[in-house]
Amino acid sequence: MSHALHPAGRRAARLSLVGLWLWTGVVSLWELYGQSAALLHAAGLDAALAQTLILSGAGLDLLIGAALWRWHAPRLYLAAGLAMLVMTVLGSLLLPSLWLHPLGPLSKNLPIAALLYLLFLDAREGGSSS
């Protein structure tokens, strides 16, 4: 059974994830002392730990976004999925109310996981990078 994606679908899927991860990294840094900090302050974290988590998360987001832009490889999709899972668990533990947020900061990870899985299958079967 083939799991290969149509080249246009593969391109759209990859670019949507690239945009998501790069934008999330940029916005996290832009809001380092604004919304990003306020969110972690609401979770009870002190400013130093919050800043460390924001900078680490933003760096990881930017790295994943750049890697997704450059490569179409099964290990990359697994790594991106693992990073998303870790961030989802941390977000769930720190601020479980994010699951009820109308814009879905955590629930959006469910379709992202599905997209990563489809791209993983495509890359594993040798779908070309496009």
Results as ranks from 00 to 15, higher is better:
residue 89 V to F: 00
residue 34 G to N: 11
residue 41 H to I: 01
residue 68 L to P: 09
residue 83 A to D: 01
residue 60 L to G: 03
residue 34 G to K: 13
residue 79 A to G: 08
residue 80 A to E: 05
residue 39 L to Y: 04
residue 77 Y to F: 15
residue 85 L to A: 11
residue 63 L to D: 04
residue 83 A to S: 12
residue 44 G to L: 06
residue 91 G to L: 09
residue 55 L to Q: 13
residue 41 H to P: 00
residue 38 A to K: 12
residue 63 L to I: 15
residue 60 L to I: 15
residue 39 L to K: 07
residue 90 L to Q: 12
residue 43 A to P: 01
residue 64 I to Y: 05
residue 48 A to V: 10
residue 83 A to P: 02
residue 63 L to N: 05
residue 34 G to A: 14
residue 55 L to V: 15
residue 53 L to W: 09
residue 81 G to A: 07
residue 37 A to C: 01
residue 34 G to I: 09
residue 60 L to H: 04
residue 47 A to N: 03
residue 48 A to E: 07
residue 84 M to D: 02
residue 88 T to K: 07
residue 36 S to C: 03
residue 70 R to Y: 12
residue 97 S to G: 13
residue 42 A to G: 12
residue 66 A to E: 10
residue 46 D to L: 03
residue 67 A to K: 06
residue 98 L to N: 10
residue 76 L to M: 12
residue 96 P to L: 07
residue 38 A to W: 08
residue 79 A to R: 05
residue 98 L to P: 06
residue 50 A to Y: 01
residue 78 L to F: 04
residue 88 T to G: 08
residue 61 D to Q: 11
residue 65 G to M: 12
residue 97 S to V: 14
residue 53 L to A: 10
residue 91 G to Y: 05
residue 60 L to P: 04
residue 65 G to S: 12
residue 36 S to M: 05
residue 85 L to F: 04
residue 90 L to C: 10
residue 51 Q to W: 08
residue 93 L to I: 13
residue 41 H to A: 14
residue 95 L to N: 09
residue 40 L to A: 02
residue 76 L to Y: 09
residue 69 W to L: 15
residue 86 V to G: 00
residue 49 L to P: 01
residue 38 A to H: 07
residue 90 L to A: 14
residue 55 L to P: 02
residue 56 S to W: 15
residue 78 L to N: 00
residue 98 L to D: 05
residue 52 T to C: 05
residue 65 G to Y: 05
residue 87 M to Y: 15
residue 52 T to K: 10
residue 91 G to I: 09
residue 71 W to Q: 13
residue 92 S to A: 11
residue 51 Q to P: 00
residue 79 A to S: 10
residue 51 Q to C: 06
residue 80 A to H: 07
residue 38 A to F: 07
residue 39 L to H: 03
residue 62 L to Y: 06
residue 61 D to C: 14
residue 64 I to N: 05
residue 94 L to D: 01
residue 50 A to N: 02
residue 86 V to R: 03
residue 56 S to L: 15
residue 44 G to Q: 03
residue 80 A to M: 10
residue 43 A to S: 04
residue 43 A to R: 00
residue 56 S to F: 15
residue 60 L to D: 01
residue 87 M to H: 14
residue 56 S to N: 14
residue 35 Q to C: 00
residue 61 D to P: 11
residue 97 S to Q: 14
residue 42 A to R: 13
residue 61 D to L: 10
residue 99 W to F: 06
residue 89 V to Y: 01
residue 77 Y to S: 14
residue 52 T to W: 14
residue 82 L to I: 15
residue 84 M to H: 03
residue 73 A to I: 08
residue 63 L to V: 15
residue 85 L to W: 01
residue 99 W to M: 07
residue 85 L to N: 00
residue 53 L to C: 09
residue 87 M to I: 08
residue 93 L to K: 03
residue 41 H to R: 12
residue 45 L to G: 00
residue 57 G to E: 09
residue 78 L to A: 05
residue 83 A to R: 03
residue 59 G to T: 06
residue 59 G to R: 06
residue 49 L to H: 02
residue 71 W to T: 09
residue 51 Q to D: 11
residue 72 H to C: 13
residue 89 V to Q: 03
residue 45 L to Y: 00
residue 50 A to G: 04
residue 45 L to N: 00
residue 56 S to C: 15
residue 36 S to R: 01
residue 75 R to N: 07
residue 95 L to F: 02
residue 52 T to D: 07
residue 88 T to I: 09
residue 54 I to V: 13
residue 83 A to E: 02
residue 78 L to V: 13
residue 84 M to P: 02
residue 59 G to W: 04
residue 39 L to R: 10
residue 47 A to P: 02
